[in-house]
Amino acid sequence: MKMPKLSASTAVAAAVCAALVLLPVYSAVTGNIFILTMFTRIVILALAAASLNLIMGYGGMMSFGHAAYLGIGGYAVGILAAEGFGSGFIQWPVALVVSALFALVVGALSLRTRGVYFIMITLAFAQMAYYIASALSRYGGDDGLTVYKRSDFAGLINLSNRTQFYYLCLACLFGGLYLIWRIVNSRFGLVVQGVRSNEQRMQAIGFHANRYRLVCFVIAGTICGLAGALLANNTDFVSPAVMYWTRSGDLMVMVILGGMGSLFGPVIGAIVFLVLEELLSQFTEYWALIMGPLLLLIVLFARGGIMGLLGRMSRG
């Protein structure tokens, strides 16, 4: 990430940010509540996609199990709520810490492998988390767990208020993006990116490649755990299905669609993917019939995703 020039991609990113900030105003003026609900979900999943982008785009770690953290963050909120701990000051830190610990274990073991093996082992760990959640019969098992009361922040912010909750999610997204931007441009981030392009060389000049990778992996898992806590509050519900491998696939699609390794790409990817899904499903019940080949065409003809396309356009 160099200093932002006023390229097409920067302009689009700025416009999208502005639109996201003004969305509740539009919703209030037109009385269109649906769009606010939809974009709350989009913003949350954009945060999850952005965290995946940190390890996938900048770190070169193709995790196929990233949805596990969505579930872990969600279950932390759901289980604590069910046990009578309604305060967000307890729920959210627990969600973050448990996600970080899970990422630490998964990362420490998975990072011994590379390439396709890494894709598969992260998938395996996510599937294990999925089966554990399915077996939690005390907390709904397969059917999932209803969160009867959203996280309580002692009157500081009311999560049941649609607009307040939307702005909270948006603040988390912008905060997450800022954090990722800072990480990517720090010495630590440069080492991680160096390891992605040439691991041997980085090892040779004295960096413990895997330690840097692992820390990066844990940070991404923690951010995604936050997205999970938000998601559980948004749907008032958490179920093992959140962690199913196709959900991890969805997150990957958002990242690649938007443009891997570009800071704002995953946000664009999440918006395009989820809006397209919504529009197509209004238009036809068989939306995936169009979405599927569309993904194929994007891979074949639009390398670097939407941000890559914009970048090429602005370069002429």
């Binding site: 696939g249 990957m252 690649i256 068989y286 995936a288 019939l289 599927g292 891979v299 390398r303």
Partner: peptide, 28 residues
């Protein structure tokens, strides 16, 4: 065949799209 030699990730994404397609085609 246009995906050979591409990044594994591209292949994962494209064939993930095919799964979506086949599932809905079967439903149809």
């Amino acid at each position: 065949r246009h995906l050979y030699g591409r990044d594994h990730l591209d292949q994962v994404l494209a064939t993930f799209g095919l799964i979506l397609f086949f599932n809905d085609a079967v439903r149809l």
